[in-house]
Amino acid sequence: MTPTTFETEQTYGLRKSLSRAIPYILLTISILPIIIGYAWIFIATFSVRTEGLIPKDAHGNIGGLTLQNWSFLHNPEVWNATLNSFGIAVGMVVGVGFLSSLTGYALARMNFAGRKGFLGTTLLLHAFRPEMLLIAIFQVLLFIGGIPLIGDWVGFNTVGGVALVMITLDLPLGVWLMKGFFDNLSWDMERAALIDGASRFRVWWEIILPQIKPGLAALSIFTFITGWNAYLIPFTFTIGSKVANLPVLLNRFSGDTSLGSWNEVAALGLFQLVPILVFFIFTQEALLNIYGGGSKGGA
């Protein structure tokens, strides 16, 4: 081996590892603000006050650390709210997951009038924010609420009504994502089952759903986040916040009449963050499958 070749290979190797490192460097730079910001939040929850990133005590020296901001953990109300949040989020995951996969399946596998129209419409519906529709949805709930029997379950000021509204508002995204997954599923097994005389529903339930689990998991995380952080709908459509979840509690702590301090807000905020992080870690792999692939997919 001549020195020249050796050198070339070395430079080549260097360049290669450099080009390997570039993504890491860029990504690290990109997350710097987030890391610093969350570091501050974390420090703040354990301090009386902070200046920049440094916790300070009463005399301006470094120090003043405290566990006081986390004292809400002793409060049973917080745990109750956590439970409520969890209930709402899980309810939404189940509801949206079930309905979206039902509809997504039909959109991907069946031909019927209004199919494209439905897809276009649902995408557009996303442009209507719940805040805008609040009053109109209220009128609908009011009408339903007036119907005897049904109204007792899904009308205004019922948990059922709130649940249906929240699920519905999340359906457009869910349907679009699920359709994409179904588009990329193999058709063979299903076809065989259908030829053997299985009903569509049975095929969907027994053959398709197990295959779509990664997709469901991916959709779940988006839905779970929405449900976990839900505030406006559950608050407005029930009288006296029947469902006091964590966001409602958090809302208590901030604002001009609140007597709480910011550091407690941050602590409660971090507390609210943890379950989603855990959830995300478990579903991360699945999340990467959110777009099924293929050159002409249908996400």
């Binding site: 529709l133 457009p172 529903f201």
Partner: peptide
């Protein structure tokens, strides 16, 4: 067709009741 509508109906119903009608109401 029926099967398709069957699969579509829960979502469609909800979307119509809690989304489309409110949009028109808006």
């Amino acid at each position: 067709t029926l099967g398709a509508y069957g699969f579509m109906s829960p979502t469609s119903l909800l979307v119509i009741i809690f989304f489309l009608i409110p949009v028109v109401l808006l």
